[in-house]
């Protein structure tokens, strides 16, 4: 009996799948398939309980459903919107990928410049000045990673990601200015003073964002 039930399950499933084959997925389509399958199976079992053999019962049940082409057309329309969304999200993925690559290159460029200027025995403030590339690179990497959509998470909203990027940028900028002022004035307390301004704003913004975080996990990963 259980084996038979499984066989019917598969038959119903593959019928419903074939009905909507080649249609872009959507939550509605997923739900409709399950709804149709459950009801179709129940109808078939009703027929068999009246003495019809299972194959015949399944055929009758399918025929008696009527013309489903209207529903199929509805789902096709929904699926097309989905296809457009998919193109859009690969588009943002590409932008985000470019952002990560460029951000990493910018950061590396900053590190190499600093190393180069340091060994050229240039004054400390000139060396630290190249840290501005690391600031820009760090902010860009932050933004690009956060807006990236993965299989498990949706990308972050652009404004929010930009705010995160600003907070990281401010923290890095604070450190850069601290080094610059340290070397140009030779006084540590001035360096700490100028670090404080940007660093505190950056950390404040970061904490605010981190504590108001919403769940971006996709439903199937929850």
């Amino acid at each position: 009996m259980n084996k038979k039930n499984n066989q019917l399950n598969n038959q119903v499933k593959s019928y419903v799948e074939s009905l909507f084959s080649g249609i872009g997925t959507s939550q509605q389509l997923f739900d409709l398939k399950e709804e149709l399958a459950t009801n179709l199976k129940e109808k078939t079992l009703d027929y068999t309980s009246r003495g019809m053999d299972e194959q015949q019962a399944f055929k009758e049940a399918v025929i008696s459903m009527g013309d489903l082409s209207g529903l199929v057309a509805d789902m096709r329309l929904l699926g097309q919107d989905k296809a457009r969304q998919a193109v859009y999200s690969t588009m943002t993925a590409r932008i985000s990928l470019a952002g990560i690559v460029f951000g990493v290159l910018l950061t590396l460029f900053g590190i190499f410049t600093i190393a180069m200027l340091y060994f050229m025995k240039l004054p400390g403030e000139a060396v630290a000045g190249s840290g501005i590339f690391i600031v820009a690179g760090g902010a860009l990497i932050t933004y690009s990673i956060l807006t990236r959509e993965t299989t498990a998470r949706f990308g972050m909203n652009k404004i929010r990601a930009a705010l995160y990027a600003i907070s990281i940028g401010l923290i890095l900028f604070g450190m850069t200015t601290a080094f610059i002022t340290r070397y140009s004035t030779g006084e540590m307390f001035i360096a700490i003073g100028s670090l404080m301004v940007f660093f505190l704003v950056g950390v404040g913004l970061f904490l605010f964002l981190a504590l108001t975080e919403t769940d971006r996990r996709k439903s199937s990963y929850r």
Partner: peptide, 26 residues
């Protein structure tokens, strides 16, 4: 739910009318 509504409509009509499931889902 779907199939039960289908059966209830047949019963309401005194077995004189069947509303197709395709129409119901739409």
């Amino acid at each position: 739910y779907g199939y039960e509504i289908y059966k209830k409509i047949i019963a309401l009509s005194g077995n004189q009318y069947e509303l197709k499931e395709a129409t119901l889902y739409t």
